[in-house]
């Protein structure tokens, strides 16, 4: 059976209960290759069933809902199946399985969560704010995983006096800190008026970037390994 769901936590937990004893289950929030004769179900989030599954999983492993939240943020194509297999194994084992890395499903989930966590860490460095006319900071990003709200606590802690917007242009949403509260909002396109000094500071940053490089040691492959080209789009030092 193929189970379609919308990628939300409650729909996942509902589908998890439905697919629990289905050894042949395919769970997906994207598209799936349908073969002749395959049966499909569109799973709607069911609040009470989701709570039942949540309660059961939490009783087994206190960290299970945190794991689920991370897994569902992953941009990996197979993340739904990875999550389903992981939670099935967790429920069948009846105790936390996080460290049982010799199991395929645990390892796959660990790798998937590691990639999300790594990208959050990378973006703590790679986010580039622009100063807007009103003094607020605006940063467009296009990460592999759905992480823009996970970046907020870090920047809020270090820039408490600056309202900021971190705009995931790929997923068309933005994490906003208005100086007091943080929230997530859908955002398609943002009209930005830059502050008077912004261009100059960006130019100065480019000068610094060029100056600090040692040209006799060319290691482009290493640079791209640490800072993949897909992240360059919003970095002033890599534009122009």
């Amino acid at each position: 059976m193929i189970y379609f769901y919308d990628g939300s936590k409650d729909a996942f937990l509902t589908a998890f209960l439905l697919a629990y004893n289905d050894g042949d289950a395919t769970l997906t929030s994207g598209s799936a290759q349908l073969s002749i004769g395959s049966q499909t179900v569109f799973v709607q989030a069911d609040f009470s069933r989701a709570r039942r599954a949540e309660k059961r999983l939490l009783a087994i492993d206190k960290g299970s809902m945190r794991d689920l939240s991370v897994l569902l943020r992953s941009g990996d194509g197979d993340r739904d199946m990875v999550a389903l297999d992981y939670f099935k194994f967790l429920a069948k084992t009846g105790r936390p399985v996080r460290e049982m890395l010799a199991e395929d499903c645990v390892l796959a989930a660990a790798e998937c969560m590691r990639r999300v966590g790594n990208e959050v860490h990378r973006f703590h460095g790679f986010v580039r704010f622009m100063e807007t006319g009103c003094g607020a900071l605006y940063a467009p990003i296009s990460p592999d995983n759905d992480i823009c709200d996970l970046l907020v606590p870090h920047f809020r802690a270090r820039l408490p006096g600056f309202p900021f917007v971190i705009h995931d242009v790929k997923r068309k949403k933005a994490a906003v800190y208005d100086g007091e509260h943080t929230f997530l909002a859908p955002l398609d396109r943002a009209e930005i008026v830059l502050s008077a000094g912004e261009e100059k500071w960006q130019a100065l940053w480019r000068d610094y970037y060029d100056g600090v490089n040692i040209p006799s040691r060319k290691r482009l492959k290493q640079m791209r390994g640490y800072m993949p080209v897909r992240y360059w789009k919003f970095m002033p030092e890599k534009k122009g």
Binding site: H121, H124, G125, F126, A157, R158, L159, P160, G161, F162, Y209, V212, N213, I214, P215, R217, K218, R219, L220, K221, Q222, M223, Y226, M227, M235, E237
Partner: peptide
């Protein structure tokens, strides 16, 4: 952060990489 700008990041953080790697 004590009200101004910035804080420490115990793990350290890289912000960019130059062509020398």
């Amino acid at each position: 952060n004590g009200g101004g700008i910035g804080n420490g990041y115990a793990a350290g953080c890289c912000h960019s990489f130059t062509p020398d790697g």
